[in-house]
Amino acid sequence: MELFGIWVAALLTLGIFSFLYKDNPVYKICESIFIGVSAGYWAIANFFDALHKKFWVGVFPTDGSDPNYMLWFGALLGVLMLLRLSSKIGWIARWPLAFIVGATAGLYMMLYFVSNAMNQVASTMRDVIVTSPETHLIMWGETIGSILIVIGVVSGLVYFFFSKEHKGVFGYTARVGIWFLMITFGAHFGYTVMSRMSLLIGRIDFLFRDWLHLLN
């Protein structure tokens, strides 16, 4: 059975890789299997994780704990969502959607504001001339690092300021900001490509070691 699994995985891997040449029937078969299996998997996983484990067990507990009646509200929203199948009262399905969108926006607004704005502001306020506590000499590495952080944050904010045209000093500052962003993206790019290479190596290792036994 394990051997059968390895052969299936290897053939599906090669089928997906065949897309690198061009779209072909083998890729289409692999794609359909992938989509079908994953859609089926998620349907069952959602049924047991959400409907059974969260809702059913929550409202009809068997371990002696109190039922969580709030879950009925979630169930009601779910039923309202299904009303879109009706042409007459399908408009009611907008209510649960509006609830989800509104609740999400409200919940995340403060969360993001704290982590992405307030904490960033507090952390950026730093001494840009860093000296050694013992010798009182300037520590050039830390000093340059602090200056870069402050310039990067301020110029980045200027770039994302939408109420003023990027002209003159403001425009030059915004350009400095975009340079900082691009250098950051470049570093991210290199880092991520390296991690993707390790994924590719993992797949090739599977093909040559587990399937073809060409590697020990």
Partner: peptide, 15 residues
Amino acid sequence: YITDEQFGYVAAVDG
């Protein structure tokens, strides 16, 4: 709707 699975979705969109 395609699938919740990340790379299943990607395979379909690429197709």
